[in-house]
Design a protein around this nucleic acid. Structure first.
Length: 267
DNA sequence: CGGCATGTTTCGCC
DNA sequence: AGGCGAAACATGCC
């Protein structure tokens, strides 16, 4: 479920962790680097940031060690439970149980959560285990962040690429934080056919797309994330008419991902 | 049971 | 060399 909006919600949920010291880390070694626990235990969380779909817990420098950060990459099904509370419940695999067997990284802190010493400060829960917990993730090649998109940045990033605009927008080196749902939503809002080669968008269309991203993201963030658009999971999973013009929505695969779009107004 | 999934990386073919 | 699509990863849900 995690796209940039979910990461942003979880970033906010992690803010109470600032100033706490990690006293224990129980990690599934299949999703974390060697010696992860060794690196983070004893460190104090200094700040919490987000870049694209990644949540970053900044660690204050200790003694000989330079400052480091924990990167949380959620994959398809990762999610966070902070101080015993899941900031987002409206997720797949969240129906009913959030099984402890799917916990891939559990952090205990000092001070402990108000909920009690037995409650982990952070649980990285991921059934499919496509997510990753990293140390000092390389973010240097990511594109402009979703909340910083401008027409100029978007135009430059799309460049002369001939790949479908749908595929280009999913590339994190172009825009960091857009996922499959958000891309379909923004193309629907901007009235752009997802098959269009990226380079064929003229300036006016790039401006319109950037404007939709800039305007809709804060609204969807307030409403609860990537699932709150006109092309909600409910709309995506069964045949629906376009909410804008009544045209039957089309469902097809573009760039390997299921794409929902309206042939009536997306050109 | 078959198909599908809000993501990223890798492989192989132009 | 670089771009691109398919496959792989891993597991649960409908």
């Amino acid at each position: 479920m995690p796209e940039g909006l979910e990461a942003e919600i979880w970033r906010g949920a992690c803010e109470p962790l600032i100033g706490r010291t990690i006293v224990a880390a129980d990690v599934d070694e299949r999703v974390a680097p060697f010696a992860f626990a060794h690196v983070v235990v004893g460190a104090t969380i200094g700040d919490v940031r987000r870049v694209g779909k990644v949540v970053l817990l900044g660690l204050l420098p200790t003694g000989e060690q330079t400052s480091r950060s924990i990167g949380l990459h959620f994959g398809m099904t990762g999610r966070l439970i902070v101080d015993g509370v899941a900031a987002i419940e409206r997720l797949s695999y969240a129906s009913g149980r959030d099984a402890a067997q799917w916990d891939r990284c559990v952090l205990q802190t000092d001070p402990a959560p108000a909920a009690g010493v037995g409650t982990p400060a952070l649980r990285f829960n991921d059934p499919r285990r496509l997510g990753r917990v990293t140390i000092d993730p390389d973010l240097s090649r990511l594109g402009v962040d979703i909340f910083d998109v401008t027409a100029a940045a978007l135009g430059a990033a799309l460049g002369r690429r001939q790949i479908a605009i749908k595929t280009a927008l999913l590339d994190q080196h172009v825009v960091a934080g857009l996922g499959n749902l958000l891309v379909d939503e923004m193309l629907w809002r901007a009235g752009l056919d997802p098959h269009r080669p990226a380079a064929t968008l003229d300036q006016r269309e790039v401006r319109r797309l950037a404007e939709m991203i800039r305007r809709r993201l804060p609204i969807m963030l307030r409403r609860g994330g990537s699932t709150t658009g006109a092309l909600s999971p409910d709309v995506r999973s069964a045949p629906h008419a376009c909410a804008r013009d009544g045209f039957p929505l089309r469902r097809e695969t573009i760039g390997g991902r299921t794409t929902i779009w309206c042939p009536g107004h997306q050109h």
